[in-house]
Design a protein around this nucleic acid. Sequence first.
DNA 1: CTCACAACTGGAGCGCGCTCCAGGTCAAGC
DNA 2: GCTTGACCTGGAGCGCGCTCCAGTTGTGAG
Lengths: 130, 130
Amino acid sequence: MLPMAARTTHYLTPAETVERSGFSLDTLRYYERIGLLTDVGRSPSGHRRFTAEDLQWLGILRCLRDTGMPIAEMRRYADLARCGDPKSLAERIALLEKHDTTVEEQVALLRAQQQHLREKIRYYQSVQPA
Amino acid sequence: MLPMAARTTHYLTPAETVERSGFSLDTLRYYERIGLLTDVGRSPSGHRRFTAEDLQWLGILRCLRDTGMPIAEMRRYADLARCGDPKSLAERIALLEKHDTTVEEQVALLRAQQQHLREKIRYYQSVQPA
DNA sequence: CTCACAACTGGAGCGCGCTCCAGGTCAAGC
DNA sequence: GCTTGACCTGGAGCGCGCTCCAGTTGTGAG
């Protein structure tokens, strides 16, 4: 282990990034391969070094992933985000807003089916002898 | 097409079942293969004939599927449901209640991440020139 | 120095839940 | 009788999102 105090706190090792992002190391490498994660720093020996910014980006990826955005669309978003603000901003907003409505729909479906589930449970309970 | 009036309304053809259940024919066959659907009736020539009861069961399967229950667990539920009421009832209730809490968690996660999503959108909007 | 363990790479493999295909049979309209 | 399209079966294939593997190199502790 590196002595904590002796390191610039600017870089995170893969292990630390795994811990803080909640993604597995394999997933981090996979995301880099497919272009969800770009320009990841390297130590002189070739080991990855993540920045706080990377971690923040991973937070966004987690948000999108947890809400069911397919990877192809995350890539589109990543590409827009990477190319910088100028005209891609409106596109990014549109993409996220569209995604927001799909999340809304997901929640609505889950809630509706949860109602059915609970009715079923109540029915079973009413039938139960005890 | 069969003339509607000439048929006992008790049986549904595969096509009708597809339409009413929302599952594809392939999925219906798949569900039968893996034991999610059992004792599906057959016409003399071997074509499937679904009953209203089958359709109701498909409704339950849809509910479970839409709420993300893995097929292995649906099978467990199907097995419990098939073996009849006596002592499996409590197990079924337990299974569904457990699933209900996972649905609750799913919704909570979605909602939380949706908040982040919306913050991001608001941030973009605040940055937008227009 | 040695050891153990972290990390590297390219590529194969996997689990899930279907979906598709080939090669046939069945049935209703003309 | 013929055609068309629904349906059958067993089995292969697929898309997604990772996950694992082999073989090698790096690194920090004792």
